[in-house]
């Protein structure tokens, strides 16, 4: 009998330990594990080290003080501006940033996926990413619950012996204790089908010790297995599956709903100050008992206006009055 991996959100988030290296799936304002981020705040996790980017989902963790450090390439939210809480905490020195390139993250996750300690690249050569004064890897390594999740060096320069590419950078593998990925559909055994950009999720699920999926819909595993070429995450890499409809709100989830621009604009505005953030997090996270209450507070009518329509997978803007 195949193992059923379905658990409630609370239980799934309980596996995250203080000081863990955490990867939250996808990017910016699309397919983000928002409900999971809210639950991490509710459970009061501490000392987390974030990977890849500090955008919509991560910014809330930074704002509430769940995260102490970050290694990645992006602290913005596209058209909505820079990540407000992250900005504030980096500028006050409360939150440690170690900047690397976008390709560096990919290669790091790719090396981890391949079981390799590092991969060679010319990415970021010539830039201040290589400035030794700006490396915070040693410091972050000390903050990690398991220091071996963070490399001993940020990079090493090395002469290419194979193709005469000159001096290249050895980029270490990037590993996570826990990865949380929000997907459109998951089966009860963990097979998952993603629509739209995969971001780095198809690499990071193999670079993490534990993988939690939150899914818009849990569908019969057998249904997903009718077209294995259409699935991006294999059951063998998934530990837990949580069903959370609208679990990516206010981000967009292709084929399900579009981005809630008004909600994100409100967040960005509020989170610019400590007190504004506190007020926002009280209203939308702490004083909310469950994801069901979050949805009711948003209101069924509002949510319907975000629902995507076929064949687009999003909501053409002319049909979504009141969102923009």
């Amino acid at each position: 009998m195949a193992k059923i991996k379905l658990v409630p959100l609370r239980e799934a988030v309980e596996v995250i330990r203080d000081g863990d290296v955490l990867f939250l799936g996808s990017l910016i304002e699309s397919r983000r594990p928002m409900a999971a981020a809210y639950e991490i705040v509710r459970q009061g996790k501490k000392g987390l080290i974030l990977l890849a980017e500090c955008s919509l989902a991560e910014d809330i963790l930074v704002g509430y003080g769940c995260a102490v450090a970050w290694r990645g390439c992006y602290t913005g939210m596209a058209n909505f501006g820079l990540s407000p809480a992250t900005l504030r905490k980096i500028e006050t020195g409360e939150f440690i940033a170690d900047d690397i390139g976008h390709i560096d993250i990919i290669l790091g996750a790719m090396a981890a996926m391949a079981g390799s300690p590092f991969v060679a690249t010319r990415a970021t050569l010539g830039s201040d990413v290589l400035n030794p004064d700006y490396s915070r890897v040693g410091q972050i390594r000390k903050l990690a619950r398991d220091p071996d999740m963070i490399p001993r060096e940020k990079f090493i320069l090395f002469e290419d012996p194979f193709y005469g590419e000159g001096q290249v950078k050895l980029q270490p593998a990037m590993k996570a204790d826990v990865a949380i990925i929000h997907v459109q559909q998951a089966g009860e055994e963990g097979t998952a089908r993603v629509e739209g950009p995969l971001a780095f999720d198809h690499y990071f699920i193999h670079a993490a010790r534990r993988v939690i999926l939150t899914a818009e819909q849990v569908v019969p595993e057998a249904y997903l297995r009718r077209d294995p070429n259409r699935n991006q995450i294999p059951c063998t890499s998934v530990d837990m599956v949580v069903e959370i409809p609208w679990g990516g709100h206010p981000s967009q989830v292709k084929g399900f709903y579009d981005v809630d621009m008004a909600f994100i604009r409100d967040y960005v505005k509020m989170a610019k100050s400590e007190s504004g953030f506190q007020q926002w997090v009280d209203e939308w996270v702490l004083n909310i008992e469950s994801h069901d209450s979050y949805l009711d507070k948003l209101g069924a009518g509002n949510l319907e206006r975000l629902r995507s329509i076929p064949p687009y997978g999003y909501r053409p803007r002319k049909t979504c009055a009141g969102i923009a």
Binding site: S26, L27, I28, E29, S30, R31, A78, N79, H102, I103, I105, I106, M110, T121, R122, A123, E195, G196, P197, L198, A199, F200, D201, H202, Y203, Q252, K254, G255, D258, V259, M261, S308, P311, Y312, G313, Y314
Partner: peptide, 27 residues
């Protein structure tokens, strides 16, 4: 599109993978 992740970019494209497949052509 409002961002590079917007579903509006997926619709009608030849191939929808992730960041590795998006950035490696540069290198």
């Amino acid at each position: 599109p409002i961002s590079i992740m917007d579903s509006r970019l997926t619709y009608g494209s030849s191939w929808q993978m992730g960041d590795p497949e998006g950035l490696f052509p540069l290198v």
